[in-house]
Every structure is written in C-alpha cells, then in structure tokens.
Design a protein around this nucleic acid. Sequence first.
DNA 1: GGCATTTGCGTAACCGTGTACACAAATCTT
DNA 2: AAGATTTGTGTACACGGTTACGCAAATGCC
Lengths: 329, 329
Amino acid sequence: MNKKRMTSKELAKLAGVSSATISRAFSPDSRIGDATRERILAVAREHGYQPNAIARSLNNQRSRLVALVVNAIGNPCEAEEQQLLVHRLQARQLLPIILCCADHDDRLQLMRLASTYQVDHVVVFSDMVSMQDAVDIFRTTKPIIVSFEPLEHKSVSNIRIDGSAAADEIVDKIVKDGKKRFAYMTGTNSSWIDKLRRQWFSEALAKRGLKFEASAFGDYTYDSGFKESVMLIHRDKVDAIICGNDVMAIGARDAARRVLGKTTPTDIAIVGQDGIAMAAWDCNDLTTLSLDHVAFIDAVMELIERHEEDLEGPHSITLTCTARWGSTA
Amino acid sequence: MNKKRMTSKELAKLAGVSSATISRAFSPDSRIGDATRERILAVAREHGYQPNAIARSLNNQRSRLVALVVNAIGNPCEAEEQQLLVHRLQARQLLPIILCCADHDDRLQLMRLASTYQVDHVVVFSDMVSMQDAVDIFRTTKPIIVSFEPLEHKSVSNIRIDGSAAADEIVDKIVKDGKKRFAYMTGTNSSWIDKLRRQWFSEALAKRGLKFEASAFGDYTYDSGFKESVMLIHRDKVDAIICGNDVMAIGARDAARRVLGKTTPTDIAIVGQDGIAMAAWDCNDLTTLSLDHVAFIDAVMELIERHEEDLEGPHSITLTCTARWGSTA
DNA sequence: GGCATTTGCGTAACCGTGTACACAAATCTT
DNA sequence: AAGATTTGTGTACACGGTTACGCAAATGCC
C-alpha cells in the first residue's frame, strides 16, 4: 500500500534535531549552521522527505496557487495565452488551478470553491464572468484580479487592449478594395470584449461614412462561423465580414469558398481577431486583428509580480493590437 | 485594503456557539440541531464566511486537488480531452492543477512541487514523463496515476488504447487504392505512445507484405508536418503518409497540395491520428485513426472514482480506436 | 417515574509547518 | 579576561479547521 508521507518531526528524530531545525534547513535564509543544514538535506533526500505545502500554506498565509478563470481549454483563441502563462507561472514556482467556465452551470460557485483554497492571485481570462462577481468572491482573500474588462475598480489591476488603430488600417484596405456592405459576426451576445472589438470597427467605418449592414451571432466555433456566414452572404448580400475570432473567420472563409463559390479577397473580405498560430497556416492565411501573445502574457506577469511584492494599489497596462495580413482581406 | 478572511472562531463568536459547531454546520452528516445549523449558515452567508480549504485539507488528509500532467495546453490533440476532464472534475468539486511539461526544463522537479500539495489523484496525459518517474515522485502520497503507458505496475491504474483494428482497416483501403510506398511521420522520437501507434500500422503493413519505406521526425506541429512531408514525397517518393497526429497530417496535406501539386487521395494518401474536431472541418476533411474522447474521459473518471472510494488495487481499462474517413485516404 | 439511550454542543487535542522567544555556546570587543 | 554581541538550536504556540471524548438535556421505554 502507499506509504504515508514523512513529517518533519519524524525526520527530526532521524537527524537528531528538533522539527524547527528541519524547517530552517528548508528556508533559504534562516539562522542555521551549514553543517547541520547539509546533514539534514542529506537525510531528507535519502528518505524522500519534502515539506508539506498545504501545512506551509496554512502557516504562511501564502499558497503559491493561482486561479486561472478561462472560458475553455480547447479553444485555440485562448489556448496560446494559457500555455504561455502556465509556463511563466511554473518558472516562478506558482501552480495554476484551472477554472473552466464554458460548460459549468454555476460559474460563481466554482469561483467560490477556488477562493476557499486561498489562491494568491486570480487571472480572469474569461468574459463569461463579470469583474464585479470576481471582486465580490475574491474580496476576502489577498489576490488581485487581472482582468481585461475596461471597468475601473479600486482593488483590481487590469490590462486594456486597444485595437482601434489596427481596425482602422484593416477597414481602410477593404474599403479601398471597393467593398461596401460590412457585417459583424459576434461570438457571444453578452460579452464586453466582443462589444469592444465591434466598436473599434464601427468607429473605423463611421469615419468613412459606413456602418455595419448586418450582424450574426455565433459562438466562437468553426461551425457557427460557417453557418452564420452563409446567411450573411446569401440573405444580406454583404461583401465584408468581420468575425469575433479567428476560428469563426476560418469557418466563414470555408463557407464562402465551398458553399457559395466566392474567392477572397476578390469577391468578399473576411477578417478574424486574435492572431492565433493556426490563422497563419498555409491553408488558412487569414487577415486578422492580432494581439502579441508574448507581450500580453508579459503584462500579466508584470501585474502578478507587482502583487507578489506587495506594491499597493491597482495597476493598469494598455496594449495595442496590430493588423496581420493574409489573403482573405 | 483587502479584508482578511473570517475564521470559524470569529464566526462562532458572532453566532454564539463554539468553533466545533461551526465545523459541524458545514459537514453534511454530523450531529447538530437543525435550528442551530440554519442559524449558523445564515450568519455565515451574511458575513461571507466559507471554511478554509487549506486548513481542512491539512486535517482531512484530502486536498481535493488533482494534478494533470500534460504536454501542452494549446495543442489541439490533447486539448479536447483536457477540456472534458476538467469539466468532469469540477462537477465533482475536484480542482485541477495543470503541470505543463512541454517547455519546462525540469519536469521532475515540477512534479515534485505538485506532490507537496498532497494532490488526491494524478492523471498523466503527457508522454514526456515516464511512468516510473511519476510513481517514484507520487509514491509517498495517496494518489494513483492514470497513465496510458502499457507498462504493468502494481500501484498504477491505467488506460490501454488499442488501434490495431482501425489501423488495419485504414491500411486495407489505401493498399486497395494502389498505394505501395508508405512513410511514418513521428511526433517525438522517444515517446512510447508514438511507438505504439507506429506499431499498429507496421503490423497492418506486414500482414500484406509491406513495410514503411521511410520515416520522418516531426514535433506534432503543423509546420513540422508541412516541412517533413515535402522531404518524404520529394526524396523518398512515398505515396502514403501516416502521421503521428492530426495537426501534422494537415500540414502534410497542405504541403502535398500547395507545394507539390498533388491531390488526395488520388496521388497520395495522408492519415492523421487523434480524431480532433478540427480534422473534420470542411477545409481539412481528414482521414484519421480516432479515439472517442468522451469514452476516454469516462474511463479516466471511472478510475478516479474507484480511487475516491478506496477500492484497492490498480485497475486497467482498454479502449479501441475507430477509423474516421475523410477525403485524404 | 426510573432508567437507558439518543441528541446537541463545548473542550481539547490534533493535522504539519513556520517562527518569536529563550538560552547556551561561540565569537568579538578593548 | 570580563562583558557585549553573534550564532545555533530547542520549546511553545500559531495557522484554521476536524473530531474523539465528555457531559447535560431531551427523548425513549415499560
């Protein structure tokens, strides 16, 4: 059967010291003789002892756990950032706990559960939970929330994303190509991030005396992009579709090409958002409003580090998007 | 500033009871009067009290944390399973800690770190860590390991995957189409799962007096699939490529079509493995050796539940793959 | 109504570490 | 060499909950 884990007291007996000295041997800067430390670490290695992080967390008031609130794991538009962030956290000996909102009926209860684990930080990637809810739930614990929602809140650090310049650039090119009837395909009907993105393009259109002639409501998936764009092209006769993310844009491109026999960018312009790696694949070659993932995660880590060092007050960082050109617009 | 979290003693004072009674109010079946419990829960709600999971874990010897050892998060071939599993774990109030091996230089140290958190279960998806290492590191704690490595081990439950029948079916079709020169493109050079998959196809070929005429070494990415297949087709004149996963197969298909002007399945047959959703997209339409993700995660949860109920002994479950037909073979 | 049993709750001892405090030994002053 | 300081270690308690134990009150039984 599985052996029980050894405690510091047991190891203390084996090494002929007190359990306090064991603890000191594992704390980098504490008053302990070099010889004693060496001996203890040797005995510990021999018996496979390692301090219990749960007990340490209880005492320290620091769990070294980080809650990542995400929509889904499989979704490519978030996955690249998640991967980068997890990597960076691990490098700092922080362990990520994933909270997956997508198909969990009670997201708030899920966050409450995570909050009982005394996580040190919370990163909210998901736009399915409101910042206010996150603040309420994690209010009692030390963490700050790294959120992208552009709402001001006194105890929340956040990252602003500005894509208006890139959207303007993209619209400019499409209009110069002679397109006139634009449509916007959203990923969720209630998401503030989707609203924000739409707004960048709306403003770029308005500047040129244009507006969105039609809208479609997808769910960020390839299938929804495929299906909705058939409607947009067939019924609304649009010749430019701005999609809420890259995956829907790929679906839209496939629909335009395969079902309706259109080619991009000649007959129709299709634009994605996110700038995922897959968008640059030869078979996709998508024009997309892209955010530099590395810069993004750098910003998140910057906020986390500030919080680790107990620098007071909420901080805010703004990032700008760029246009990434493919053959679809 | 952030308030400190309320403790059971503080709540006890507010409710006029002892801290033990607070604890009882939160344990479903313990000797406590209905009226008292109601009153305590009301006061707790009012003040936002929730028991500290870290302290509870220390006492219980049960953390309700599960370590998921994965290669990467973004990689679509694992992502769908990860998403499903996280969802199922959350439904059981278990929180997943992600250990991402891909670009972490010291995977073993990462696992040791996680083991100090007294995780209840460990699920090893990654083929970058050997089962023996996982067993050694998590030996002292209660968890079992759910691994797919077909190695027998007295303290490890595992899931076997058998794709030999499906591989046979696929090879049969390709050979009947007149193809003669097969190549295998592996994703990692040292992975047992890749060896296993290759073996299924090798045996199917051997049965027909054939063998792999060439090999390529990719890294599970689109780019490597693209690049390596150019070599295979150009240098080795193969007319059938079996890829270690779907993403490389899509890369190979693009290379064959765009760079070399070949069409599938007429000129060349290309086969993926995993059966990810993207493989079925209209633009891909890949023939792939596919594993039912839902059945797979059902099996993982089955093992976890058996372990939660302390059913002794390692368990083993075998799943079989099926062929999913597209236009590439 | 007397006795056995059950119910409801407080007391105190844990779970495994970290650390303030105390104190002896070693080292540094001049 | 006597006092001041530093160093190394043990003792005891805290972190926030759970639970075995004990005991009074309430309930059951004939």
